[in-house]
């Protein structure tokens, strides 16, 4: 195998792992925001314990 293969593979794998980290961060954040909005739309707030 040529050295180009090892260099290209290194950059592709790194790009994929970094893209995975960024995607995971964005998707997870959106899921939590949606869940929070859903709970609050049903009137579940921190103060609802008193009410």
């Amino acid at each position: 195998m040529s050295h180009t293969f090892f260099i290209a593979f290194s950059y592709i794998v790194t790009a994929l792992v970094v893209a995975g980290l960024i995607l995971r961060a964005v998707i997870d954040h959106r899921i939590q925001l949606r869940a929070l909005a859903d709970l609050e739309s049903r009137g579940i707030g921190r103060r609802s314990r008193r009410g």
Binding site: Q32, L36, G45, R49
Partner: peptide, 18 residues
């Protein structure tokens, strides 16, 4: 995101208690 997750967890428990 983790702070939001904990808020969701707390509110879900509150909802269950209610």
């Amino acid at each position: 995101t983790e702070i939001l997750r904990r808020r969701v967890r707390t509110l879900t428990i509150l909802e269950a208690e209610r």
